[in-house]
């Protein structure tokens, strides 16, 4: 494409060589990315880790960032990021004291900005021993008990037929629970907890317990009451019973609008028990003549 002009007194042979080579730098220009530009100014004032642990990516006084840690390598993450596979085994194996560490991502925001904007900085890394100087870790520690204290509304439930049913017949039960969100403040951070019903434990009142099961059943149309359903039960004894339901909620939480993180444990919320009376049904033939048979049924 390019040509070196003649007329500089060169003999032909080196000119050809020069021509051939002169194309190379043009074709293979190395295009830098902007982040590489720091190389040409000789690095920066970040002297590296001055801290005692890997708690924070940099703790130098001139660090431009403030940091947050976020729980790393949750189940979803492990499916996405191969780095989790290298970090997690080491992390679970434990540090010097044998206690397992916590995998975290570091998020950074500019120091001194009017309001922090957290962007992914690095990780996952495993943090052992010293508690990360970070609110999120503290929140993570408290979130489970906070979750247990939430006023999660219990599921509505009912039976069909009800509150009276018959011995030997299919009695259908159903539950209706809803996903609920709660906004609270923990250590000055806005925390949003979402409780999602995931399983149900049925107590039919005659000693039969079924669950936890993800099956919540549904009300039947009136003309089909008595049919067998996924949640129906057949009572073998008559009596006045109470039926009960415990709904199991999974929780997730976000801090300051960050990523959704799982809450360990479940919230087990009982619904108010309901009375159910099981009656006996007898079928008789009222065909006898009472004069012929005075002891006949109905006589």
């Amino acid at each position: 494409m390019d040509s070196i002009p003649f007329g500089n007194g060169c003999i032909l042979l080196p000119l050809i060589v020069v021509q051939a080579l002169s194309v190379v730098p043009l074709a293979d220009i190395e295009i830098p990315k902007w982040n590489d530009a720091s190389v040409v100014v000789g690095g920066n004032d970040e002297s590296g880790n001055q801290g005692t642990s890997d708690d924070q990516p940099s703790t130098g006084p001139d660090d431009k960032y403030i940091y947050q840690s976020r729980v790393a390598c949750t189940e979803g993450d492990q499916a996405i990021f191969p780095t989790c596979a290298t970090v997690m085994p080491e992390c679970l194996a434990g540090g010097e004291d044998g206690k397992p560490g916590t995998a975290i991502y570091w998020y950074a925001s500019l120091k001194g900005a009017a309001s922090p904007v957290w962007v992914f900085h690095s990780g996952p890394v495993c943090v052992f021993g010293e508690k990360p100087r970070d609110l999120l870790a503290e929140i993570a520690g408290q979130i489970a008990s906070e979750f247990q204290r939430l006023p999660i509304a219990a599921a509505e439930f009912g039976s069909q037929p009800g509150p009276h049913t018959l011995r030997g017949k299919e009695t259908n039960v159903w539950a209706n629970a809803s996903t609920q969100t709660f906004n609270l403040t923990m250590i000055g951070q806005k925390v949003t907890i979402t409780a999602t019903p995931v399983a149900y434990t049925w107590s039919y009142g005659d000693g039969t317990i079924w669950g936890p099961t993800p099956i919540h059943g549904a009300p039947l149309n009136k003309d089909r009451i008595g049919e067998q359903t996924q949640t129906s039960h057949v009572y073998t004894e008559t009596g006045r019973l109470t039926i009960g339901l415990i709904t199991h909620f999974n929780g997730t939480y976000t801090v300051n609008g960050g990523p959704e993180l799982p809450i360990p444990g479940q919230g087990n919320i009982p619904s108010a028990s309901q009375p159910l009376t099981v009656w006996r049904a007898e079928t008789n033939l009222y065909a006898d003549d009472c004069i012929v048979n005075p002891n006949g049924i109905g006589c």
Binding site: D2, S3, I4, P5, G7, N8, G9, C10, I11, P14, L15
Partner: peptide, 13 residues
């Protein structure tokens, strides 16, 4: 090749 040392004045057309 010392004879080539004078650089071309308009190398980049």
């Amino acid at each position: 090749l010392a004879g080539c040392s004078s650089p071309p004045k308009t190398a980049a057309t």
